[in-house]
Write a protein that binds this DNA or RNA. Structure first.
Length: 743
DNA sequence: TCTAGCTCTGTTTTT
DNA sequence: CAGAGCTAGA
């Protein structure tokens, strides 16, 4: 147990206390992972069985890393027997075992967000609501409800939700939710949120099942506790109720996932929910220099809602944070690229490209940065955007695999019934789906026997449907290794033929992706053979693939700088970090402008960004930026004014010859721009405030001409107006983009 | 039924 | 600017 000697006092106390519930407040860079891994190793050394330890992490990658580190402290066998993974992966495993109890098939499909979205979209269409209901928004509402443990049945009984929907003029959300849930059940599918909700339903309705797991998991550890939602909270509570051996680790200052239902109160209220808990605070930051820690502290001090703590660093003072302003987003990117080259040069071979990361608020910002990096021949890797399993060609093959495992999977069927084209078009598919929904059976059952469901297709169509059905049925019969099944699909479905007359680079890369998928399946088989000495099923593979994320891949391909969103950077560290796009309306996001809680979360996000840096932190913003198809002028972010100037270096706009100021904040104030929106006075086109509009008012639009305001809506943070234009008809315009003239 | 190309619209973060 | 949706023409 030498590892105990490497811990500081508070870390050691946190590791050694295993008698009851404990809360470890772990500041950024304070050795949180070390505490967790040492604690698990310590439990094992005290004779606890690895099978009885449940450790929940935020990402698969974090789980894997911890396993590796625990294996180094104990044995590989012990580490591999731990129940360690994300909430979603651990509980999908448990749900699969217990599926029968809650009337799901053992091999239920996991719908990803795209599947959910597409199902919701078709329900909206069926209900004739596409005018005013957007699938993404409805999905958000359903997801929010599920994370708050509100089922389709209880939704209409929840006044707060119904009132919100009424206010948003979307009173039918409850009905869409209900139909959505029925269709998921019909298809034998769970969405991401179901994995948590259904676990709670399982534990609620089957005390014997709960008891089995509660007594199996003798000790429960939860990482990133500040980002758990109500559904996760309740699962933990249920499992730990009896023995109360629970250790949660987190940092309220890094709670950044409320949009996904994360409830910061879980960590803030832990001491009240477990009154006899011990609290340990890890306040020494081992990651960053003093300047970086102090600057971050000065920022987060501006938040009201937090557990007070004093994070400090005993590393060198280090360089001050430097702040740069570009005249445009392109210049900002140019400055960033130059600073990276410069830092790397100055330090000779001390820094490699792997020591740099550029962080941003939104994925869309990466484009301009990439351009600038390419011009300088700086190699980069970019996280975010489409993950491997989200690419169209991969999803197509995956949909066939899903159908084999669960032919009732409607989203999968919709995807491939006519891909590659086999003459079963929209009309035919629509009839099949309608028949299925009115008979309350799956589309697959209709296809298996179209005549029994009152469908009168002509012989040609029947033949096409029949041959598709036979093809899938024949795949289901196959017993060869699953990677060979996948290869057969590509060959026999006609997907391979689609790629034969390829010339374009895109087509080649699609082909390569499909090959990689098959290779990946083969590797999965091999690994399972080696580790568990078992023959994995397609269902095993799909379950893992459904919960795979971009973060999980270890793209260690050579020396590259990293580009990612701040969210994606959570838990990571780099010697040099650039945080870009510090403009009001971008960071903090325009979505959170008038919501104090949301602003505090954005501030925590900025805090997370700064505290990723070990040695150098560079903050940049652009005075103008190309967004939404036009160039907009911005102001420096309000967060820049939160930073204590003594830790910040001069603003330099070196490439435009702007004066250099001694004081960064003063400089930032100097460049404060007039308000972004150009008010629509003096008979000119401009942005009109929703306050200045009312129904019946006559307005002019740049392109659509004269019109009359019908309705104004303030929902969802972006005010919009429905306007009847004399020639262009009825339009719904987002007021912060639309150039209008009153009168 | 399919595809190419046009028009229109709307932008956060993601297990 | 890019993705979705629509239309025309095959």
């Amino acid at each position: 147990m030498e590892y105990l000697n490497e811990l500081n006092e508070s870390q050691r106390e946190a590791v050694l206390y295993i008698a009851g519930p404990s809360l470890v407040i772990a500041g950024a860079g304070s050795g949180k992972t070390k505490v967790l891994t040492c604690k698990v190793a310590y439990l094992l050394s005290q004779g606890w069985s690895p099978h009885g330890i449940l450790a929940l992490t935020f990402t698969n990658k974090a789980a894997r890393e911890m396993k590796t580190r625990i294996a180094a402290l104990t044995t590989a066998e012990q580490a591999s027997n731990l129940w360690m993974g994300t909430f979603h992966s651990i509980f999908s495993r448990i749900l699969r075992r217990e599926a029968k109890l809650i009337n799901y098939p053992t091999d239920f499909t996991i719908y990803d967000s795209d599947d959910s979205r597409s199902l919701i979209k078709s329900i909206i269409k069926e209900m004739g609501l596409e005018e005013s209901y957007r699938p993404g928004m409805v999905h958000g509402r359903i997801s929010h409800a599920k994370n708050a443990l509100i089922t389709a049945q209880s939704y209409p009984q929840t006044p707060a939700l119904m009132a919100h929907d009424d206010a948003c003029k979307t009173p039918m959300v409850f009905e869409i939710y209900d139909r959505y849930q029925k269709r998921c059940t019909q298809a034998g599918a769970m969405d991401f949120d179901d994995l948590l909700l259904q676990t709670n339903i399982l534990f609620r309705d089957h005390p014997d099942a709960l008891d089995r797991y509660a007594s199996r998991f003798n000790y429960i550890l939860v990482d990133e506790y500040q980002d758990t939602n109500s559904a996760q909270y309740l699962i933990i509570k249920r499992l730990a109720q009896k023995h109360q051996r629970l250790c949660v680790v987190g940092d309220d200052a890094q709670s950044i996932y409320s949009f996904r239902g994360a409830n910061i109160d879980n960590i803030l209220q832990f001491r009240h929910q477990y009154p006899d808990c011990r609290i340990f605070k890890l306040e020494r930051n081992y990651r960053s220099t003093q300047n970086i820690v102090n600057a971050a502290n000065s920022l987060i001090a501006k938040n009201d809602n937090q557990i007070r703590k004093t994070i400090y660093s005993e590393k060198e003072k280090g360089a001050r944070i430097s702040l740069f302003a570009g005249y445009s987003d392109h210049e900002e990117a140019y400055i960033i690229a130059s600073k990276i080259v410069e830092l790397r040069m100055n330090r000779g071979d001390r820094y490699t490209y792997n020591d740099f990361a550029i962080l941003y608020r939104t994925n869309a910002q990466s484009r301009v940065l990439e351009e600038a990096l390419r011009k300088r021949n700086i190699p980069y890797r970019i996280y975010g955007g489409l993950s491997f399993y989200q690419r169209k060609e991969v999803k197509d093959v995956m949909a066939y695999l899903r159908l084999i495992v669960n032919p009732d999977d409607e989203e999968a069927l919709k995807r491939v019934i006519n891909y590659p084209a086999r003459g079963i078009g929209e009309g035919t598919l629509g009839k099949i789906l309608n028949a299925a929904h009115s008979a309350e059976v799956s589309a697959w059952q209709v296809i298996a026997n179209p005549n029994s469901y009152g469908l009168s297709f002509n012989a040609g169509i029947l033949k096409k449907i029949g041959s598709f059905h036979n093809f899938i049925a024949s795949l289901i019969q196959r017993t060869d290794p699953i990677d060979e099944v996948a290869a057969a699909i590509v060959r026999e479905s006609g997907i391979a033929a689609e790629f034969i007359n390829d010339k374009s680079i895109e087509n080649l890369s699609r082909k390569a992706n499909i090959e990689e998928l098959i290779k990946g399946i083969a590797e999965f088989v091999l690994q399972a053979n080696e580790e568990q000495d078992s023959q994995p099923t397609l269902a095993d593979f799909l379950a893992e693939a459904a919960l795979y994320t971009e973060q999980d891949s270890d793209k260690a391909d050579g020396e590259r700088i990293t580009l990612m969103t701040v969210h994606a950077a959570k838990g990571l560290e780099f010697r040099n970090v650039v945080v870009s796009g510090l403009e009001d309306d971008l960071f903090p996001s325009s979505m959170s402008q008038d919501n104090p809680r949301a602003i505090e979360e954005e501030r925590r996000l900025f805090y997370v960004a700064i505290t990723r840096a070990e040695e150098n932190c560079i903050i940049t913003y652009a005075k103008s930026r190309f967004r939404h198809g036009r160039t907009t002028t911005g102001r420096p972010s309000r967060f820049l004014f939160d930073l204590d100037p003594s830790f910040i270096d001069t603003v330099e706009t070196e490439f435009a010859g702007a004066p250099k100021h001694a004081n960064a904040i003063a400089a930032a104030v100097d460049v404060r721009q007039p308000p972004i929106s150009k008010p629509a006075h003096d008979g000119e086109y401009g942005i009109v405030s929703p306050r200045d509009l009312s129904p019946g008012m006559a307005v002019m639009h740049e392109r659509f001409g004269a019109g009359t305001v019908q309705e104004i809506s303030l929902e969802g943070g972006s005010a919009s107006a429905i306007i009847d234009f004399d020639t262009a008809g009825r339009k719904r315009l987002i007021l912060k983009y639309a150039y209008l003239k009153i009168g």
